[in-house]
C-alpha cells in the first residue's frame, strides 16, 4: 500500500458516498445517469468475485463490500425508490455499445484465459468507459448540479491517483500491469474535459453548464 493508492481509494469512497447522500438527501436522482451506475455495479460484481475465493486483507475485503453495497444501493435508489425523478430521456446511452466490445476485448487481450481473470479484465476495461453515459447525459442536458460535479471530480481523481500508484509500484516493487495501466490512462483521459470545466467553473463558484 502507498499514499497514492490509499488517497485514491478514499477519493473513490468519497465519490460513492457523495452520490449516495445526494440522492438520499434530495430524494432525487435528477441529472444522474442510472446506466453508468449499472455499469459500476457490474464492474464491482465482476471484479470482486475473488471475495469468495481469496482473502487479501481486512481493508481489501471491507472496501470491496462497501463498494458493492453502495453500488447496488445507488442503482436501487435510482430505478426503484426515486424512479419518478429518474431522467430516462436524457440517459439514453446504449449500454450494449460498451458492454459487448469490452466483453470481446476482455476475451482477446488478457493475462490468462481463466474465468476469474477474464472477468477481472472485463471489469478493468468496463470501468474505463463506465462514466461515458453520465458524461453523455450532462452533454445532453447541458448542465450538472454542483454536488454531481463533486462526485465526478472525486471519481475521476481516484483513477488519476492510481496512475501514480502504479508508477510508485513499478519503481519500488518492480511491479506493473499493462492492462490496468492502459485502461486507467484511458479512464483518466475521459475526465480531462470535465476536469477543465470543474476547475475553471465550479471551483470559481459558477454552475457547470455547457457549451463551455
Amino acid at each position: 500500500m502507498n499514499i497514492f493508492r490509499l488517497t485514491g481509494d478514499l477519493s473513490h469512497l468519497a465519490a460513492i458516498i457523495i452520490l449516495l447522500l445526494k440522492i438520499w438527501k434530495t430524494r432525487s436522482c435528477a441529472g444522474i445517469s442510472g446506466k453508468s451506475q449499472i455499469l459500476f455495479a457490474l464492474v464491482f460484481t465482476t471484479r470482486y468475485l475473488d471475495l469468495l475465493t481469496s482473502f487479501i486483507s481486512f481493508y481489501n475485503t471491507i472496501m470491496k463490500l462497501i463498494y458493492i453495497g453502495c453500488a447496488y444501493a445507488t442503482v436501487y435508489l435510482i430505478y426503484m425508490k426515486f424512479k419518478a425523478t429518474y431522467d430516462g430521456n436524457h440517459d439514453s446511452f446504449r449500454l450494449e455499445f460498451l458492454v459487448v466490445p469490452v466483453g470481446g476485448l476482455a476475451c482477446l487481450v488478457n493475462h490468462d484465459f481463466s474465468f476469474l481473470e477474464i472477468l477481472w479484465t472485463f471489469s478493468i476495461y468496463l470501468e474505463s468507459v463506465a462514466i461515458l453515459p453520465q458524461l453523455f447525459m450532462i452533454s445532453k442536458t447541458g448542465e450538472a448540479e454542483t454536488i454531481t460535479t463533486h462526485y465526478l471530480f472525486f471519481l475521476g481523481l481516484y483513477r488519476a491517483l492510481y496512475l501514480f500508484n502504479w508508477i510508485w509500484r513499478f519503481y519500488f516493487e518492480g511491479f506493473f500491469d499493462m492492462i490496468a495501466i492502459v485502461a486507467g490512462v484511458v479512464q483518466t483521459i475521459l475526465y480531462c474535459d470535465f476536469f477543465y470545466l470543474y476547475v475553471t467553473k465550479v471551483l470559481k463558484g459558477k454552475k457547470l453548464s455547457l457549451p463551455a
Binding site: 493508492r5 481509494d9 473513490h12 475473488d50 481469496s54 487479501i56 486483507s57 481489501n60 472496501m63 470491496k64 463498494y67 493475462h111 490468462d112 481473470e117 477481472w120 492510481y162 500508484n165 502504479w166 509500484r169 516493487e173 518492480g174 511491479f175 500491469d177 492492462i179 490496468a180
Partner: peptide
Amino acid sequence: QPPSSPKDEL
C-alpha cells in the same frame, strides 16, 4: 515476484 496483475488492488 509480485502478482502478474494487481489483484491486491481495489
